[in-house]
């Protein structure tokens, strides 16, 4: 039995079907990226898992039990939701003290998690004075308070600056390395790609793909090509004029969905000298875009998970 099991989950709000027949697992010791564009149904799924919304059909369980059936839930599951909020007049330490009393954890544990998230020096200040990064750290501290074996993180990097994102990434990897099952939702694919082992991709409430990162990254589409050239702007315009999609990253151009050989021929025809050309596997971004568009075929299931 996987620590997190979602089976044929459906959630309907009036006439809107936010999630439809969704099934996947989250395994221990692995970080599972739960990806999809805004409005895909990620938060609804996580909230159904955490007992905050009632599923219309299907189940979402932790070790076979619904969240509200867990004895001292904070010792099983730690969750950071997108709208993590704190009473503005209550200090970070007192926020954690309240949770510690509710969950039956010691006050020493409060000090420990404050130390873990590097918030000890600001712990006695009212939460209304906290920056976005500090609030996110406090939310993480709340989730870690019961030393749970499962972590659910909903868009945890939203609003964080680059050091904050790097900190979050490292923390997530560390938790998985300690054997925890981590489910992390995001629409910021580039950030998640470096942290996750498995991915579950949904769009419009439906599963699009699931499997290991490699499995979903792979696929049978034409690879993209990375190039550098002195006349990079002219080359980019020429490619776009010819109907190709390109992404510019500094002095490097990523030509999406075109093999290196074709790009080389195109450069020769345009009289552009390339200083670097290399095939690049389909990026998660590309896979994501392909998978979250209007479905032209049944959902892909490249992985064995679920």
């Amino acid at each position: 039995m996987a620590p997190v099991e979602i089976r044929e989950l459906t959630k309907r709000f009036a006439s809107v079907e936010a999630v439809k027949d969704l099934s996947f697992d989250v395994e221990p010791g692995r970080v599972t990226g739960f990806l999809g564009p805004n409005g895909a149904g990620k938060s609804t799924t996580l909230r159904a898992l955490l007992g905050l919304v009632r599923p219309t059909a299907g189940t979402a369980t932790f070790d076979g039990r619904q969240y509200e059936q867990l004895e001292r839930p904070s010792t099983h599951v730690g969750a950071v939701l997108e709208d993590a909020a704190f009473h503005p007049g209550r200090s970070g330490r007192n926020h954690l003290r309240v949770l510690a009393v509710t969950g039956g954890h010691s006050q020493r544990r409060v000090d420990e998690v404050l130390e873990t998230v590097d918030l000890t020096s600001a712990a006695d200040r009212p939460a209304k004075g906290y920056s976005m990064g500090m609030r996110q750290r406090l939310a993480i501290a709340s989730a870690l308070l019961g030393d749970p074996q499962i972590l659910i993180l909903d868009e945890p990097t939203n609003g964080l600056d680059p050091p904050g994102i790097a900190w979050m990434r490292e923390l997530v990897r560390r938790q998985a390395a300690d054997g925890r099952a981590v489910l992390i939702s995001s629409h910021l694919l580039a950030e998640v790609a470096q942290s996750v082992d498995d991915v579950v991709i949904i769009a419009k409430g439906r599963l699009r793909a699931r499997g290991t990162l490699e499995q979903v990254l792979g696929g049978d589409e034409v690879a993209s090509t990375e190039v550098r050239a002195r006349e990079i702007d002219r080359f980019a315009h020429a490619l776009e004029a010819a109907g190709h999609r390109v992404e510019r990253n500094g002095d490097t151009l990523l030509v999406l969905g075109v093999a290196a050989e074709q790009v080389g021929e195109f450069a020769t025809r345009e009289g552009v000298t390339l200083s670097y050309i290399a095939p690049r596997g389909r990026s998660l971004e590309t896979a994501f875009l392909a998978l979250t568009g209007e479905p032209e075929s049944p959902p892909a299931d490249p992985g064995a998970a679920g």
Partner: peptide
């Protein structure tokens, strides 16, 4: 009502789901 006003109700329900 303050739990909704300050949006702390989600955290409260997570800590005490019953």
């Amino acid at each position: 009502s303050g739990e909704w006003r300050h949006r702390t109700i989600t955290g409260t329900f997570l800590a005490a789901p019953e």
